[in-house]
């Protein structure tokens, strides 16, 4: 019993320690973002990095998400004779929910993991120490450009995901399921309004910050050689994915 309580206690303590450290890291990021000039070159490089790493996978997953939504949506709507609403179903599901979430998950797996690994290697090879002793703040130099690049690129990638998904759904609806072209888009125009787009935008903006925050934190605190970096990378991807889903629900409930 004593041993059991010890294990529980240790787990709770390390959880609070972790939460304390990751939120202090966020506070430092916020402080540095607003008090020091941005490293513009690093910021632009990271925007390119996110786009370059993630665009292909976002286009592919977006297309197939839209296609499968159309296929399954048609199956369900057909039972009620409401196939005409397939366009809005695909668009609303993508714009409000699946676009931001799936895009964030894909970017986490592709670019987020790469950020963690890169920063982790910088940590274990003393490159971060080298920056510090050269009086260059590593948070300003490495972390802030990543966070801001995430803030900018996630909504853009999500928009691409949504667009490609809607056209993927269109392709299946019109050419495979025989829905009329006009019905698909006209109903969409009728049912999708600006509020839905705003919900998707808020979600993708916050995912951009959450993913880059977690991934940079994990890399920044990587330990003990190659195994430490690999552990940090796995944990960054798992934690980001879990937080994305939790935050999606919380924000979804808030903005409903």
């Amino acid at each position: 019993m004593k041993q059991f309580l010890k294990v529980i206690g240790r787990g709770v303590l390390s959880l609070f320690l972790f939460l304390g450290r990751i939120f202090l890291f966020l506070l430092e990021i916020i402080y540095i973002t607003f008090t020091t000039p941005l490293k513009v070159r690093n910021f632009l490089r990271q925007i390119r990095f996110f786009g370059n790493k993630s665009l292909v996978v976002v286009v592919f997953t977006g297309a197939f998400s839209g296609m499968v939504l159309a296929l399954q949506g048609y199956y369900a709507l057909n039972k009620f004779g409401a196939e005409a609403l397939l366009g809005p179903v695909v668009a609303l599901s993508l714009i409000r929910e699946l676009g931001p979430v799936l895009c964030a998950l894909m970017v986490t797996g592709r670019a987020g993991s790469a950020i963690t690994a890169e920063i982790g290697i910088m940590r274990i090879t003393e490159q971060i120490d080298a920056l510090t002793v050269m009086a260059v703040n590593p948070i300003r130099y490495i972390v802030v450009p990543n966070i801001l690049a995430g803030f900018v690129t996630f909504p853009l990638l999500t928009a691409i995901f949504d667009l490609v998904g809607i056209y993927g759904g269109y392709f299946v609806s019109v050419y495979a399921l025989g829905l009329s072209e006009g019905t698909y888009f006209s109903q969409m125009e009728l049912y999708v309004d600006m509020e839905d787009i705003k919900v998707g935008l808020y979600k993708s903006l916050s995912f951009g910050v959450i993913v880059t925050w977690i991934c940079t934190f994990m890399g920044y605190n990587a330990k003990y050689g190659a195994r430490g970096v690999s552990k940090a990378t796995t944990e960054a991807v798992v934690l980001s994915s879990v937080v994305i889903l939790i935050w999606d629900y919380m924000l979804g409930a808030l903005l409903l």
Binding site: T125, E126, Q127, D129, A130
Partner: peptide, 9 residues
């Protein structure tokens, strides 16, 4: 001068 050089890759 760090042990492994700590050069930026």
């Amino acid at each position: 001068v760090f042990q492994g050089g700590a050069l930026f890759d």
